[in-house]
Design a protein around this nucleic acid. Structure first.
Lengths: 232, 232
DNA sequence: GTGTGTGAACTTGTTCACAGCG
DNA sequence: CGCTGTGAACAAGTTCACACAC
């Protein structure tokens, strides 16, 4: 019935999780899935799954459940994964290399379109057929072919500089793996992926668990990452 | 006035961000900071910062702001960062190596206590003085010295097996970097850090931006990661 | 019967606006 | 006067519970 409602931020964050579960189920031969099953795998409650999915449209069959393959397609479409997004990765150290080669990209229509590093020893190197170039070439590279998303895997000290270059080249979406707070203008989509921040959140729950010492069952965080701010 | 109230999940997720900003300010010579300044760096609104901080206690000075060094100390204490948490990393490929050597650990009282990999070519290798051992040794390792947090950086195919080993060795907190949904029993703290999921969320906002084509200013996600589930 | 889709109740989180302290 | 701390108003997100489609 709904099909065109605005999808809440919280739901958007969960859709990729459902995607992954659906793909694993499909690979294991399941074709139909109930909200209950999806919910238990995603560690959320079934009503939430149904509400989330109903925002995409009425794709379930009452009495049966959802068709996994069809649902994947619908979620893909709604997440904008039915088109290719070119990505540029800056900082080709261990982490950048790991990401560049990871299946996170290829599997889902993200294409590693460019690699950047300022170390002359690394410039010119090929990682899966993409040549590493100097960050200062970014404006040129962006002209050659459009870029949609910038990924920063440089050391903290270089992160802001690289971010500025990306913004200058017209990028408006940045995924930052460097342990550094970045300043970007209004309207830029900026997300942080950060080991240290994740660990600190874990530490909080660990120490609370220690305090309450089994008295209360630990507040299970069945979550993916964390979510501070929303629009100011 | 409050000092002992239960801290909401949303606030816990933001505290490490404030931490990082405070540290950067301190390094640049600032000693006192207003909620307004913190807010603009964290890209949230000032009332939120004040409410978050007031949950820790009344540590600000009216008319002046907060003392950065003191505030860092208070947040540390509340996040449980005033003690050392031993971490075990499983999967010593590019990503595992990058994490093991990253400052995310040392900087904030997390100690890399053990490294695991099942590849005989890697077992025995030292990464910053920690010897890589076989995952099957985990029960022994856990007996030698307590472990608090498990980090999974294996390929997806090995992730569940390693998680089971960690659970078997008594670990109750897992940080999963492998692109795989894990099954864990109730009460285990499980968090995912996932490139592909982050990219998919970005894709959603990018394609919405494309649709709305500048009509409405893009919903700026000034956030760190994402937050699906809360306790069921 | 079985499991979806969804209003309505509820809970959590955010923002406002201002009293009150330094 | 400036900036914190916080009740009270508001908004977002979750869960319940049940009608209804298959």
């Amino acid at each position: 019935m709904s099909g065109r409602r605005r999808i809440p931020e919280a739901t958007v964050a969960r859709l990729p999780v459902y995607q992954r579960i659906l793909e694993e189920l499909l690979r294991s031969g399941t074709t139909t899935v109930s909200s209950e099953l999806l919910a238990s795998a995603a560690q959320v409650n079934a009503a939430k799954v149904r509400k989330d999915l109903s925002l995409l449209g009425s794709f379930g069959t009452r009495g049966a459940g959802y068709d996994a393959a069809f649902l994947i397609e619908q979620i893909d479409r709604r997440l904008g994964l039915d088109r290719i997004w070119p990505v540029v990765i800056a900082g080709i150290g261990n982490l950048g290399r790991a990401l560049a080669r990871s299946h996170g990209f290829a599997a889902r229509n993200f294409r590693v379109a460019a690699l950047l590093d300022s170390d002359p020893a690394i410039i010119g190197e090929r990682v899966d057929d993409v040549v590493v170039r100097h960050p200062d070439d970014l404006p040129l590279i962006a002209e050659e072919a459009p870029l949609a998303i910038g990924v920063i895997t440089t050391p903290a000290s270089a992160a802001q500089r690289v971010a500025d270059l990306m913004l200058g080249a017209g990028l408006r979406s940045i995924l930052n793996f460097a342990p550094r707070v970045l300043e970007v203008p209004q309207g830029v989509l900026l997300r942080y992926v950060d080991l240290s921040i994740e660990l600190q959140v874990m530490s909080f729950y660990l120490s609370r668990q220690a305090e309450e010492a089994g008295e209360d069952l630990m507040p299970v965080i069945r979550s993916i990452g964390l979510s501070p701010g929303s629009p100011e």
